[in-house]
Amino acid sequence: MNIFRLLGDLSHLLAIIILLVKIWKTRSCAGISGKSQILFAVVYTSRYLDLINAFISPYNTIMKIVFLAASYGTIYLMYMKFKATYDVNHDTFRIEFLIAPAAVLALIVNHAFEPLEILWTFSIYLESVAILPQLFLVSKTGEAESITSHYLFMLGSYRALYIFNWIYRYYAENHYDLIAIVAGIVQTVLYCDFFYLYITKVLKGKKLQLPA
């Protein structure tokens, strides 16, 4: 464990908590893409199946359970409890166009052709693009509430910090994982445009609004 990875995990955790608290407090999931939340649930489920057969550390196990629970909790709030506030007309991204290529790529480019390994690889590929429906929703409505922006910023920071973690591990621990690194870079790049708007607008107290 190094500082980049710890900070990355903490921003990931913070992002998930921000989202849950926002939905709970405002009793509304307006502006949040349910499609992205479904993709994240698929990502965590396929990646954390190793909870059954691999033990790494109490930290690792607890975080995995928290991510899974929070992810399904968010889906419950969006699709059941506060369904009436869900922006279904704007959340029109076709997630099969992300799931199918991620699945095919996982079958072709992986470390080992074994069920759990392929599911892990699939989850890495899918996570790298899972935020697209959310970014698509923001671009469709042309704006995002500040709290949604904070959520996106924390989620983007998580993968950016992981890149520093991988650089550190490469030199300090002689370890690397090319699949995670390439997918992680793709994932971070997708947030760049948003990072720019966040820093130039949201941090100056303005609403995140896209030019018409």
Binding site: H12, M63, K64, W120, Y170, E173, N174, H175, Y176, D177
Partner: peptide, 10 residues
């Protein structure tokens, strides 16, 4: 030579 690491991250 650096090794591929096990899946020990989140």
């Amino acid at each position: 030579q650096p090794q591929q690491h096990p899946h020990d991250e989140l």
